[in-house]
Computed example of a mutant assay.
Amino acid sequence: MQEGSFPLHTGMFYLTGPQVLHQQISDQQDPMYELCLHVNIVPLEAEHGPETPEDWGNRWEMAEADACMRQLQAMPATPTLDSYNAMHWFLTAYQAWQEREFGAFTTIRQAIIQILLRAARVHQSLQPTLPARNMNAYRYQLATQYIRDNYASPLTLKEVADELRIGSRQLQRIIREYANETFSSYLEHYRLTQVCLSLTHTDLTVKELAALHGFSSGSYLHYVFKKHLGVTPAHYREQQRQK
Rank of each mutant, 00 (worst) to 15 (best):
Q2T: 10
S5I: 14
M12I: 13
F13W: 09
Y14V: 03
T16V: 13
P18F: 08
L21Q: 09
Q23V: 06
Q24I: 12
S26L: 13
D27W: 06
Q29E: 12
D30F: 09
M32T: 08
E34M: 08
E45V: 09
E45H: 08
A46H: 06
G49I: 07
G49C: 04
P50L: 12
E51D: 12
T52M: 14
P53L: 09
E54K: 07
W56C: 05
N58L: 14
M62T: 07
M62L: 14
E64V: 15
D66Y: 10
P76S: 12
P76R: 10
S83G: 03
N85E: 12
M87G: 14
M87D: 10
W89R: 02
F90D: 01
L91C: 11
L91M: 12
L91E: 13
Q95E: 10
F102Q: 15
G103C: 10
A104Y: 03
F105W: 14
R109G: 05
Q114F: 07
Q114M: 13
L117I: 15
A119N: 10
A119D: 11
A120R: 03
Q124L: 08
L130M: 11
P131A: 14
R133N: 13
R133P: 01
M135S: 12
N136R: 12
A137D: 08
Y138A: 06
R139V: 00
Y140E: 01
Y140F: 15
Q141V: 07
A143N: 04
Q145G: 14
Q145K: 02
Y146P: 01
I147M: 08
Y151L: 00
A152R: 05
L155T: 01
K158E: 15
E159G: 02
D162L: 13
R169I: 09
R169V: 11
R173Y: 13
R176Y: 07
E177F: 06
Y178Q: 04
E181F: 04
T182G: 15
Y190L: 04
R191F: 00
R191I: 00
Q194R: 11
S198R: 06
L199Q: 05
T200H: 08
T200P: 00
H201W: 12
T202W: 04
E208K: 11
L209S: 03
G218S: 05
L229C: 03
G230Y: 02
T232H: 06
H235D: 11
K243A: 14
